[in-house]
Simulated assay, not measured.
Amino acid sequence: MTHIHFIVNPISGKGKHDLTESYIKTFFPATQYEVTVHLTQRKRHAIELTKLALDQGASIIVACGGDGTIHEVATELVGKSVRFGIVPVGSGNGLASNLSIPKEIDKALELIRKQKVIAMDVGSLNGAYFFSNMGFGIDATIIEQYEKSGKRKLGSYIRAALNSAQQYKAKQMRVTYNGHTKNVNPLLLFISNSNEMGYSMSLTPKASLTDGLLDYLMVPKIGILKQLTFGLYVLVKKTEKFRRTDYVQTSKIEVEILNSPKNGVQIDGEYYEYDTHLFTIEVIQKSLQVIC
Results as ranks from 00 to 15, higher is better:
Glu76Lys: 12
Asp106Tyr: 03
Leu109Val: 13
Gly90Leu: 02
Gly57Leu: 10
Ala63Ile: 08
Lys116Trp: 12
Ser81Tyr: 03
Glu104Gln: 14
Gly65Phe: 06
Lys103Asp: 14
Ser91Met: 10
Gln56Gly: 13
Pro88Arg: 10
Ser91Pro: 00
Val89Thr: 15
Val78Ile: 11
Ile70Asn: 04
Pro88Glu: 09
Ile61Ser: 05
Glu72Met: 08
Gly92Trp: 00
Asp67Lys: 08
Ile60His: 02
Ala63Asp: 09
Glu76Ala: 13
His71Ile: 01
Arg83Cys: 05
Leu109Lys: 11
Lys116Ser: 14
Lys116His: 15
His71Ala: 06
Gly66Ser: 07
Ser91Asn: 11
Lys80Leu: 15
Thr69Gly: 07
Lys114Tyr: 00
Leu109His: 08
Lys107Tyr: 12
Ala96Leu: 13
Glu76Val: 13
Lys116Met: 12
Ala74Met: 11
Thr69His: 05
Ser59Leu: 03
Val117Met: 04
Gln115Leu: 05
Val82Pro: 05
Glu76His: 09
Gly68Thr: 06
Lys80Met: 13
Arg113Gln: 14
Ser100Cys: 12
Gly79Met: 11
Gly85Thr: 04
Ile105Met: 13
Ala108Gly: 10
Gly66Ala: 11
Ala63Met: 12
Asn93Tyr: 08
Thr69Gln: 11
Lys80Thr: 15
Pro102Tyr: 09
Ala108Asp: 09
Gly92Glu: 02
Glu110Arg: 14
Gly90Val: 02
Asp67Cys: 06
Gly94Arg: 02
Asn93Thr: 09
Gly94Trp: 01
Asp67Pro: 05
Ile60Lys: 08
Val78Gly: 07
Gly65Thr: 03
Gly57Ile: 10
Lys116Ala: 14
Gln56His: 15
Ser91Gln: 04
Ile70Phe: 00
Val62His: 06
Val117Asp: 09
Ile101Trp: 11
Gln115Tyr: 00
His71Met: 07
Ser100Trp: 03
Gly57Lys: 10
Phe84Trp: 06
Cys64Asp: 07
Glu104Pro: 00
Gly90Arg: 04
Asp67Ala: 10
Ala63Pro: 08
Ser91Ala: 13
Glu72Leu: 00
Gln115His: 11
Ala74Asn: 05
Ser97Pro: 00
Leu111Pro: 02
Gly57Val: 10
Leu95His: 04
Thr75Ser: 15
Arg83Tyr: 05
His71Gln: 09
Ser59Met: 05
Phe84Cys: 02
Leu95Lys: 05
Val73Ala: 12
Gly90Glu: 01
